[in-house]
Write a protein that binds this DNA or RNA. Structure first.
Length: 396
RNA sequence: GGAGAGGUGGCCGAGUGGUCGAAGGCGGCGGAUUGCUAAUCCGUUGUAGUGGUAAUACCGCUACCCCGGGUUCAAAUCCCGGCCUCUCCGCCA
């Protein structure tokens, strides 16, 4: 979420970003609501002042043996007026919140505009060879992934890993965790896989992506689409000390996505799964360290691929592909030799203070001011490493 | 699932209708004292909104004692609903 005052004073930038991300926002109406809210708050403040004064007058007058009945009358009047205005303020604030929550994060100035170009290739690493065998054939054995039985047990897009495939998945997860814990100094987190509405709201999945989420209706909980959600919410509604920052977390979790509306797209094999494993990194930093931290994470993410001996490229996503909450996103795409294509294994995003504001994640600066934390994350999906011929061959 | 207890400031803990943003203690900060450390003494110490204003300085006002409603001129305090925590019993892993 963006700050009310920020939107007012940076209207052009905010509108431009919203348009690029194809989010429709009625800014005219929003500004009217913002102004009315201010009016009401000012009016209520003075009414309450009057109320408080009148009330203490009652006890004084009574002590002195005076007649309090006119004061009681007056108090009642003021209270009624307050009630009226409070009701309007509540409506206005709800309306304002409903408008604000649909405004996407602002885009970094470096993000390419989708009108002329698509993504921008930032880096290419390794050789992009082609092999005849597709990943799909390699993993279809009794030491591979059994999609049929996975579908029987749960439904399509729930893969069942057998033998060496299960082993490979597990060691990849461990490898990524260990690398970031030991070499990059992240703290390991093992989070809950079910979360509540507020947690998903603060990371921005809700309300926009509600139909993509698995929901447990009886308990009003959601299966996490990524470990980003519980990890980001560790400090929701908290105020940290400046010297506690930066916070660096790495978490493995299974991820659950309904992938509603994506039927027909990438329906085969390991793409677009309903359940998959992922190692997620999250950093909370001060605003002034935000950009640097983001680039550091981009390096850390690439290290995984370099150590695994995989070829990849790094791209900077264009505006229309940058997610609702993100300001700037790099994707790392591994080269899949069998299917001869680039596949997204990692996504490194800078959210600035967008999620922090939604979740009220703050820190106290030395000057005593509470500031919203900047957050960035990157993800790494081990299952996509299966796509690479060399990796599969090595392990099978 | 059944029964009970409880949620107050950074922490502990008092407070059952007005003078309570809230006693007291601890911690933090500033200072005094001090061979060092410790101890002692004095002062200070929440957050947000809004107005005065150029101000993250200062002053005023408002809100906040888990959350949301209600009663009342007046609510931390009374009433209703919710959430959370703890203890005991049962059940399952």
């Amino acid at each position: 979420m963006l700050d009310r005052e920020f939107i007012v004073s940076n209207r052009e930038l905010v509108e431009k970003s919203a348009t690029a991300k194809k989010c429709k926002v009625n800014f005219e109406h929003l500004f009217k609501v913002i102004n009315r809210r201010k009016e009401l708050i000012n009016s209520l403040n003075s009414l309450r002042e009057e109320k408080n004064k009148n009330s203490s007058q009652v006890s004084k007058t009574r002590k002195d043996g005076g007649d309090i009945s006119p004061l009681l009358e007056k108090g009642k009047e003021i209270s009624n007026k307050i009630k009226e205005e409070e009701e309007e303020l509540k409506r206005i604030e709800e309306e304002e919140f409903n408008l604000l929550k649909w405004i996407p994060n602002i885009l970094d100035e470096e993000v390419p505009s989708g009108e002329n170009s698509n993504f921008k290739i930032v880096k290419e690493f390794g050789k992009f060879e082609e092999k005849k065998l597709s990943y799909f054939e390699i993993i279809k054995s009794d030491e591979g992934i059994d999609f049929k039985r996975g579908a029987k047990i749960s439904g399509s897009h729930f893969p069942l890993y057998l033998g060496k495939a299960a082993y490979l998945e597990r060691v990849l997860v461990n490898f990524m965790l260990d690398l970031h814990i030991v070499k990059h100094n992240y703290k390991e987190i093992f989070p809950p896989f079910l979360v509540n509405y507020d947690s998903l709201f603060s990371t921005g999945q809700l309300p926009k992506l509600e139909e993509d989420m698995y929901r447990l209706k009886d308990d009003d909980l959601f299966l996490i689409p990524t470990a980003e959600v519980p990890v980001t919410n560790i400090f929701r509604d908290e105020i940290l000390n400046e010297n506690e920052l930066p916070k660096k977390f790495v978490a493995y979790s299974a991820c659950f996505r309904r992938e509603a509306g994506s039927y027909g797209k990438d329906t085969k094999g390991l793409k677009r799964l309903h359940q998959f494993n992922k190692v997620e990194l999250v950093r909370f930093t001060k605003p002034e360290e935000s950009k640097k931290a983001h680039l550091e994470m981009l390096e850390e993410a690439q290290r995984v691929l370099v150590l695994l001996g995989l070829s990849y490229r790094v791209i900077l996503l264009p505006d229309f592909d940058t997610s609702f909450s993100s300001s700037k996103t790099y994707d790392i795409e591994v080269w899949a030799e069998g299917s001869k294509e680039f596949l997204e294994v990692s996504s490194v995003s800078n959210f600035l203070d967008f999620q922090a504001r939604r979740g009220k994640i703050r820190y106290k600066s030395r000057e005593g001011k509470n500031l919203f934390i900047h957050k960035k994350k990157f993800i790494f999906s081990p299952n996509f490493c299966f796509f690479n011929y060399r990796m599969c061959k090595k392990k099978f």
